[in-house]
């Protein structure tokens, strides 16, 4: 299923854990250090360097682009490290996150409460994923190097819905279906 950013209510209502999606439009990159800064701004009631309302954040720190390229390899990083900051971002209108790995109970609760979706991309498939990135521009925190916030334009960015607005969790369901060992 192809979905467009920013994420609108009808799309969020349609998405279910397990759905494979191809994301098109503008998304923003931010990982550990940028999240700490965004969180601090929101705590102080200040404006973030990009609007959060309806937007999608991709947890990645890309490799440098070779000459003539838009971006280098750019796969997802592990999401739980962003958990302490995420509920605050969701409260301020963030509607989508792309990363890998399970979220905390607090984040899953906030995803339900604020009606957002958590997507996973394939960790380590960074060269493949970079092909769906058509434009990239640093818009905040250039001092952070790879951790700077980038505004990127994606076409058919491949992802899978992990947590939907209904409280479903693909990691829990998927593992349950294949687990054959109790200990």
């Amino acid at each position: 299923m192809e979905i467009k950013t920013p994420l609108k209510d009808d799309v969020l209502e349609r998405l279910r854990a397990g759905d494979r999606v191809f994301i098109c439009g503008i998304i923003y990159t931010a990982r550990d250090a940028a999240h700490a800064r965004l969180f601090e701004l929101l705590e102080k009631g200040e404006e973030t360097p990009f609007p959060l309302e309806g937007q999608v954040i991709y947890y990645t720190g890309p490799a440098p682009a070779k000459a003539g390229w838009v971006i280098g390899s750019a796969g997802p990083t592990t999401s739980y490290r962003m958990d302490p900051y995420t509920p605050m971002l969701l409260k301020h209108g963030l509607k989508g996150m792309i990363g890998k790995g399970a979220r905390s109970e607090e984040v899953k609760e906030a995803i339900r409460k604020y009606r957002a979706v958590y997507f996973a991309a394939v960790g380590g498939a960074a060269a493949l994923i970079s092909r769906s990135i058509k434009k990239a521009e640093i818009i905040a925190y250039p001092d952070l190097g790879t951790e700077a916030v980038r505004k990127i334009e994606v076409v058919n960015f491949p992802a899978i819905v992990i947590n939907d607005i209904y409280g479903n969790d693909l990691y829990e369901e998927g593992v349950r279906a294949y687990q054959r060992l109790e200990f």
């Binding site: 380590g124 960074a126 060269a127 493949l128």
Partner: peptide, 20 residues
């Protein structure tokens, strides 16, 4: 997807994963 990714990395001379 992982196998395809590794082929792209090798043919383009780019890192398999952004976390090098």
């Amino acid at each position: 997807q992982i196998i395809k990714n590794n082929e792209i990395a090798a043919s383009e001379g780019m890192p398999v994963c952004q976390d090098t």
